[in-house]
């Protein structure tokens, strides 16, 4: 039982951190540029499939394949911004609609190219770490560590670097940031590259653990948004924590409750939390 619960907590935390990465990307992009990139899950899908292609088809070692996979996702994000998203600035509904169109296009393209058959990579790092009676797969621990590192670096990056401070300043008060000399188009490009690249990294890590399907992006973006609302709309760290909480609830919940309704638990918790804290867990009124 301990094994089962602990295993699900780790699983849930990893999946949840991926929700969190998507939620963070959406919140960051919207907060700073006023653009809704609801298609962020698709960039995760791109990163995952790119990793798969490089590692399995071209035979690159997994750690080497991860970097170009992130770059490919970021490049796709750059193009999507230049072609579509920048025209939807400050129009949430249009951003959402363009995103839906993009999700449809990318998902169908992936279906045409890779078919709906789930793809699995070879074990990158086999074996498990044994702690008494509990065994935790090594690769999951590595992925968890990488995600944790990315989250800490993101936090430090936002709090300490010039770009991060500029981003915060811009989100708080665009006019003042403009006076301070924050160049908006450059900031917008940076945020887009970062959020889509990060989603690509999430996808690359995901590929090492779970099987890939073209529809994964749509699922993750939905969960990512639930995480963002759960954590409190607009709160960056809140969206990460919201993701982790959502993931763990789903993981642990599916031990005790029917797995088929796994996707419903998060929503139930979300509604329950909204009832008591309308601004989300970490949001302020």
């Amino acid at each position: 039982m301990t094994q089962l619960v602990l295993g699900q907590v780790l699983n849930g935390a990893i999946i949840g951190a991926m929700y969190g990465i998507i939620a963070l990307g959406i919140t960051l992009t919207f907060g700073i540029t006023g653009i809704v990139n609801f298609a962020l899950g698709e960039f995760m899908m791109i990163g995952a499939y790119a990793t798969y292609a490089l590692a399995e088809r071209f035979g690159w070692p997994y750690p080497v394949a991860v970097v170009p996979a992130c770059l490919i996702a970021a490049a796709a994000g750059y193009l999507a911004n230049k072609a579509f998203f920048r025209f939807t600035r400050n129009n949430l509904v249009n951003g959402l609609l363009v995103s839906i169109g993009l999700i449809s296009i990318l998902e169908s393209a992936a279906l045409l190219f890779w078919t709906a058959t789930p793809l699995e990579m070879h074990f990158v790092l086999p074996g498990a770490l044994r702690l008494g009676e509990v065994g935790l797969p090594k690769m999951k621990l590595v992925v968890f560590a990488v995600i944790l590192a990315v989250i800490v670096l993101t936090y430090l990056g936002l709090a300490r670097t010039w770009l991060g401070r500029a981003a915060f300043a811009y989100a708080q008060n665009p006019e003042a940031a403009m006076l301070m000399g924050v160049h908006t188009p450059r900031l917008e490009t940076a945020v887009m590259l970062y959020s889509t690249g990060l989603a690509g990294l999430g996808g690359a890590l995901y590929a090492s653990l779970y099987s890939l399907e073209p529809a994964m992006g749509g699922v993750y973006v939905l969960k990512g948004m639930e995480a963002a609302i759960l954590g409190g709309i607009g709160s960056l760290m809140g969206s990460l924590w919201g993701g982790v909480i959502l993931g763990v609830i789903e993981g642990v919940g599916s031990i005790f409750l029917p797995t088929a309704f796994r996707d419903a638990y998060g929503l139930a918790i979300l509604v329950a939390i909204l009832l008591f804290r309308p601004a989300g867990l970490f949001g302020t009124e």
Partner: peptide, 10 residues
């Protein structure tokens, strides 16, 4: 459909 959606909005 996706392309039509994006085209229409933009």
């Amino acid at each position: 459909y996706g392309a039509i959606l994006i085209f229409t909005i933009l």
